[in-house]
């Protein structure tokens, strides 16, 4: 679920931080820069793990800050493909079941990856697994919001969200707002997957 990513950065330490120990200042700046952000093709950054090396700092004419090349390792949320994770159902919609991990919300289980046969209940706004009990009757298993759910990660999608150019700024803003930098696709169409309560016994 979590991995370490090795990165290199030129960290700018502004003069008001010169009273701090260099390591602390660098760690603070790196966390400010990366914590809770998605790096393209890396994942969701959680927190600085450690600094592996700090090189000599240098100053640039006209800037009172010091610049330091640091090599560091960062804790990143990046589940591998086929990993089994446990999350909570955030909501259900026609597009499928939206799952949250608490710190990461963009997980979708599309209708085709739900237990078969499932259908969307409009009045309850929930997906229902019409479990065949074997004697011809059906048992409706609702997938309500807030329930714990075990799912398999099947795909990851990274989207570039850099700001668009000056052309049609208004349009561009609308697009960036709906863009999700990192999202996961899940599936629960195997025995053992789905709400934890389904498989308790």
């Amino acid at each position: 679920m979590f991995v370490l990513a090795e990165m290199k950065n030129v960290t700018r330490i502004s003069p008001e931080l010169f009273n701090l120990n260099l390591n602390e200042a660098v760690a603070g700046e790196l966390n400010k820069k990366l914590a809770n952000k998605v790096l393209l093709n890396v994942g969701l950054c959680i927190a600085l793990f450690d600094i592996t090396s700090i090189q000599d700092s240098f100053i640039i004419p006209g800037d009172g800050a010091s610049h330091t090349i640091v090599y560091f390792r960062y804790i990143v949320f990046r589940p591998f493909m086929e990993e089994i994770l446990i999350g909570k159902i955030r909501s259900c919609s026609q597009e499928g079941v939206h799952v949250t991990m608490g710190f990461f919300d963009d997980i979708l289980i599309p209708p085709s990856a739900l237990q078969h046969p499932s259908k969307f209940n409009e009045t309850e706004q929930a997906w229902v697994w019409e479990y065949d009990t074997g004697d011809g009757s059906k048992h409706d298993l609702f997938m309500d919001s807030g329930e714990s759910i075990r799912f398999r990660v099947t795909a990851e999608i990274f989207t570039e969200t850099c700001p668009a150019g000056p052309n049609g700024i208004q349009e561009a803003q609308d697009i960036t707002e709906s863009k999700v930098p990192y999202s996961l696709m899940g599936s629960i169409n195997e025995p053992g997957l789905g709400l934890l309560s389904w498989w308790d016994n």
Binding site: M1, F2, V3, L4, A5, E6, M7, K8, N9, V10, L39, N41, V42, G43, Y71, R73, I75, V76, R78
Partner: peptide, 15 residues
């Protein structure tokens, strides 16, 4: 900023 390795090691939840 430069990414040297995006997956240098796996961490367990406990770590």
């Amino acid at each position: 900023m430069e990414i040297i390795s995006e997956n240098a090691a796996s961490l367990s939840n406990y770590e």
